Simulated assay, not measured.
Amino acid sequence: MTAERDLRIRCVGGIAHDPTGRLLLVRRGNPPGEGLWSIPGGRVEQGESDETAVVRELEEETGLSVTVGALIGSVTRPGPRGLYEIHDYACQVRSGTLRPGDDAVDARWVTAAILATLPLTEMLRETLEAWGQLPRG
């Protein structure tokens, strides 16, 4: 493998459910995953903690202010310049109005029925199911 393919890029995601159990998702506007639905999140910037990155990413992509909770799980996914190490955290929405922003072209709360119809990023459904984080509503 080349050094570039060995590069590890730390990323975070925020897993949030509303009071009815719907899951917060965004539709990606840029690669990787352009056009696909996923958990809101992104790269951790230099000097930033995971918690700070989750708060920033959710604000940028969804307009929502969140409190970050426990680490739910981590996955590694291939990217164009290395491997994305994605650490997904439980989030509780504190305030804000849901609206897409930054690299998200859409943002919504989804039920299990809607989730089944959406084009999702690779292994998202299986991972959320394994973690017990599918929509509850």
Rank of each mutant, 00 (worst) to 15 (best):
V12D: 01
V55I: 12
G42L: 01
T20I: 11
R5Y: 05
E129C: 10
V12G: 09
T127E: 10
R43L: 13
E48R: 10
A107D: 02
P31K: 04
R22N: 13
R28A: 06
D88C: 11
G42I: 02
P78W: 06
W131H: 03
V55W: 04
D6G: 05
V26A: 08
L71M: 14
V55E: 12
L25R: 10
P80M: 07
E59W: 15
C11Y: 00
R99I: 01
C91F: 03
E59I: 12
R81L: 09
G69W: 02
G73V: 00
M123N: 15
N30E: 12
G41L: 13
T121K: 05
G35S: 00
M1D: 10
L83K: 07
P32N: 01
L7V: 00
L98K: 10
R5P: 01
D18I: 04
I72N: 09
T97P: 04
T127R: 15
P135D: 06
D106W: 02
L7H: 08
D106E: 11
A113Y: 02
E51F: 09
L7D: 08
M1G: 15
E48F: 12
R108C: 14
A53S: 14
L64R: 00
A112L: 14
E34A: 15
V54C: 06
L64C: 07
I15K: 06
G96Q: 12
